[in-house]
Design a binder for these strands. Structure first.
Lengths: 144, 144
DNA sequence: CAATCTCACTTGCATATTGCAAGTTAAATC
DNA sequence: GATTTAACTTGCAATATGCAAGTGAGATTG
């Protein structure tokens, strides 16, 4: 668990502020959801997600998330045009944050994706374990 | 648990998107932290928080949070100038989101407020229960 | 093997949001 | 009655966002 020193420009030393400075915008968490829950890995996959992010914003967010160490990228060995984005350990560790945000909205707003919500509600810990395990598998296969 | 119909302008029906549309900016969650963890209740208290929000942004965020039903406001009976802002049930229900965001940053970034972080780590459920209980007390005393 | 297509962007530009500083108004305090 | 305090609003410059069109490297097709 390697910690980065807080950038000089940070507004305060509160951990919540650090989170908000990295993730507090209208797109970053949606990209991470796509990676975590849907297995999306490439620019085009993120691009065609329901919320219709613009290409310049997507490029910027991927850059920022990578600069924070939340995701990493490498070339697809099978197709030199593609970049494969994946979650780092720091990124996969956001699963509880995303889960709680999904559950909160599902409790208080009219939203869709009830199967996921049900699974999160009835078996939160198990889902988190599954997400992590899928990631570990993928991740370990990279170093072999 | 009364649900609002999603505004027509929502980008998708994913619950995470709903959360992000309500809370995905650099200030909203910090204001809620101040209310939840520090007991702040008035414009000036929020204003003098570490992160130094501007007055126009603060006014706008309080308005938005109120429009989403996350906070509510009423006049201070003891001082007609003051407005007292408080969390609604929907607002207090964000405690797990905030907790997970604090824990995530504390795990991966260099941040302060170690006592709070330790408490969250070792007794997350208890802390959530405490926060909720404090709120229930305050809330019930309003209807008496 | 040249033309076409796909992928991951970048660029230009209009619009929206943010941030700062200075006002404003009503209510309290001196 | 004058000053202070609380909660804003207003004006304006700087920044961020969103859309449409373009670019360049690598893959595919005829």
């Amino acid at each position: 668990m390697q910690k980065k020193k807080a950038p000089p420009g940070r507004r305060s030393f509160c951990p919540l502020n650090a989170s908000v400075e990295m993730l507090g915008d209208r797109w970053s968490l949606l990209i991470l959801r796509d990676m975590m829950l849907r297995g999306y890995q490439t620019f085009n996959e993120f691009l065609h997600s329901d919320e219709k992010i613009a290409t310049n914003i997507l490029a910027d967010r991927l850059r920022r998330l990578e600069s924070y160490g939340i995701i990493s990228s490498r070339q697809d060995p099978a197709d030199g045009r593609k970049l494969i984005y994946s979650l780092t350990a720091k990124g996969i560790d956001l699963a509880p944050v995303i889960t709680e945000m999904v559950l909160w909205a599902a409790r208080h707003e009219e939203t869709g994706n009830q199967p996921l919500v049900r699974q999160m509600r009835t078996a939160k810990e198990q889902l988190l374990a599954d997400v992590r395990e899928r990631w570990e598998e993928k991740h370990s296969s990279l170093n072999s």
